[in-house]
Amino acid sequence: MTGAAASVGQPVAARDGRRRRLRRGDLSGMGFLAPFLVFYALFLIVPLIYEIVMSFFHTSLVLPGLGGFAGLGNYREVFGDARFWQAVWHTIWFTIVSTPPLVVLPLFFAIVVNRLSHGQWFFRLAFFLPYILPSAVISLIWVWLYEPGYGLVDGALSALGLGAPAWLSSPDVALYSIVIVTVWWTIGFNFVLYLAGLQDIPRDLYAAAALDGASQWQQTWRVTLPMLGRTTTLVAVLQVIASLKLFDQVYLMTAGGPNYSTRSAIEYIYDTGFTSQRIGYASAAAFVLFVIIAVVSFGWLLIVRQQEKGV
């Protein structure tokens, strides 16, 4: 009995009973892990392996089996496929354009709102509410807001005496229109992350800075911003990873158009797999994208590790 108690999170002292105890721990530990691991294996690991296997074959959506062996043919084609890299570029460009406002704006909002003594709930509601709405609803709302002529955006601009671009139907503008929607939709998540980060800054620091004669402005620059460094990195990297998975709002609002000018990498995989039915080839493209996202995520882990060591 004492043996069982000792194995609860405590280092085991007695040596002779050890092997048996370990085996018992093995069994019950794996028993607790098993349900999760079954789902994990079936719906993440097996698909991942299957995707890698398919990427070496001419697999078709409508035919059973893997199809003919392709060797590295699919990968050679992916690397030379201008449409794939165009879609990857849209995704990267979207990330480059949307990340700065999604990192800086909520930071500004959070710093200002955090100083208010009451009414913070209103800002949380305003900024966070869109974040919990489904992408399909977001797309419905914004297609209607952008509607040429009848839409509220055009109405507001014409009331100001300004002309409006063709928000979703001009190849030069459409991606930026989607950036605006995405900023509106997802800013709340970062806003809340920053608010949490601000809560963790010790008030003493401000008091000390004030004693030294620092103005409010100086306190913000010299105390708040440096103390939020870790949160800002986190927000930026989470943002980049999320942006690389861009699909829903583009697919729903423009279907990748006009003239493929907004098609994202995930949508390219979807199109080749489910419309052109070339799932062997689409798997190769998906795996390339998978590697890109995994590398970025791994870079994030390294940055976070580094920062934790620094602090």
Binding site: S7, V12, L22, G25, D26, S28, G29, M30, F32, L33, F36, L37, Y40, L44, V46, P47, L48, Y50, E51, M54, L244, K245, F247, I266, I269, Y270, G273, I279, A282, S283, A286, F287, L289, F290, I293, A294, S297, F298
Partner: peptide, 27 residues
């Protein structure tokens, strides 16, 4: 629990955080 291979299992699960499910729709 303490059991052999725990670190390995935990590492595998953590690595799973980096798997984007959107890239696995076809398989």
């Amino acid at each position: 629990h303490r059991f052999r291979g725990k670190t390995l299992v935990y590492g595998c699960i953590l690595a799973g955080i980096m798997i984007p499910p959107q890239a696995l729709i076809i398989p």
